Amino acid sequence: MDFNISKAINIVIEKVEGWLELLTNMLPNFVVAILVLVLFYFLSKMVRYGARKVMARFIEQPAIIGLLSTIISILVIGSGLVIALNLLHLSKAVTSLLAGAGIAGLAIGFAFQDISANFISGIIMAFKKPLSVGDIIETNGYMGFVKDIQLRATVIETFQGLHVIIPNRLVFQNALTNYTKTYRRRVDLSVGVSYGDNLERVKEIAREAVLKNEYLTSEKDVNVVFEEFGDSSINFRVMFWINYSPQDPNYLQARSSAVMEIKKAFDANDITIPFPIRTLDFGIKGGEKLNGHLKELQA
């Protein structure tokens, strides 16, 4: 029994001496690893500050700037941690750590697929800038002013005063019309005249009426194109370009003014804008008078 206890104590002492020797040999590396971690910590602060300054020139959303700069800072600290572990000859721990991070990231990505897609779409939109706060856009069946661009969604205020929250994934993947990116816009106005009117005269009068529109561009290019023979009218389209200002969206005003001027000009020149005509036939053979049926109903 005494022999076994002495042997066990010797084994423990040898192990402790081995650990102390290893610690003594690794002490310089340990000190260097600590210095590396401290250095990369302060370096991450500097990189984060510089990244915020640089991204502020290209990205308007403070939330996205803060998130991206934080991610960059974490990557810098992670690089310092990897270097420190390698200095301590813990390369297997580095491999295990990276593998665990990859598996965790994959699991999180599958679990929060929609959230991740909205988040990534928001980041891409922040760099590409297809829209900005204050723009007039139309997407996913909604049209209005962009009030806010968040990490997850874009907020639109419609012209009726409704706030619509659309996930960034839908804004990024679907068709988007940004009316603020251009300062000219074409107005297409459909009009019909009766078959008895002179089309050359109609074309000239309609063009002169639209030329009075105060929103026309400096070129004052007005086109009148006849399109089809309708049921009760000959239909044509009036096309003209207007100056479009994001601060003063005047598309509806220009269209309304054109309708009023054309109607006024046609009335002054006895040009008829016909309304649809329907013939009601109450007989099997047709042509029967309505009063006969009314008498039968009264009887």
Rank of each mutant, 00 (worst) to 15 (best):
V12E: 10
I13F: 15
I13M: 12
E14M: 14
E14N: 12
K15W: 15
V16G: 11
E17L: 15
W19F: 15
L20D: 15
L20P: 10
L20F: 14
E21N: 15
E21H: 15
L23D: 13
L23C: 15
N25T: 14
N25I: 13
M26A: 10
L27Y: 10
N29I: 10
N29D: 11
F30M: 09
V31D: 08
V31K: 11
V32G: 03
V32E: 05
V32R: 05
A33I: 07
A33Q: 04
I34S: 04
I34K: 01
I34Y: 03
I34T: 06
L35K: 07
V36N: 07
L37T: 00
L39Y: 05
Y41S: 05
Y41P: 01
Y41M: 01
Y41T: 08
F42C: 01
L43F: 06
L43T: 04
L43E: 00
L43R: 01
S44P: 06
K45H: 10
M46H: 03
V47D: 05
Y49D: 07
Y49L: 06
Y49A: 06
A51Q: 05
R52P: 00
R52N: 08
K53P: 09
K53G: 12
V54D: 10
M55F: 14
M55A: 11
M55G: 02
A56G: 12
F58K: 11
F58I: 13
I59Q: 10
I59A: 12
E60W: 14
Q61L: 09
P62C: 12
A63W: 11
A63M: 13
I64P: 01
I64D: 02
I65T: 03
I65D: 02
G66S: 14
L67K: 07
L67F: 12
L67I: 12
L68K: 04
T70C: 11
I72D: 00
S73V: 03
S73C: 07
S73W: 04
I74N: 12
L75E: 09
L75Y: 10
V76A: 02
I77M: 07
G78Q: 08
G78R: 05
G80K: 00
G80N: 04
L81M: 13
I83E: 02
A84Y: 02
A84E: 00
A84H: 00
N86M: 10
N86V: 07
L87A: 02
L88G: 05
H89E: 06
H89S: 09
H89Y: 09
L90F: 00
L90R: 00
S91P: 01
S91C: 07
S91Q: 09
A93E: 07
A93S: 07
V94H: 06
V94K: 03
V94F: 04
V94E: 00
T95M: 02
L98G: 04
L98D: 08
L98S: 09
G100L: 12
G100C: 05
G102N: 10
G102A: 11
I103L: 13
I103C: 14
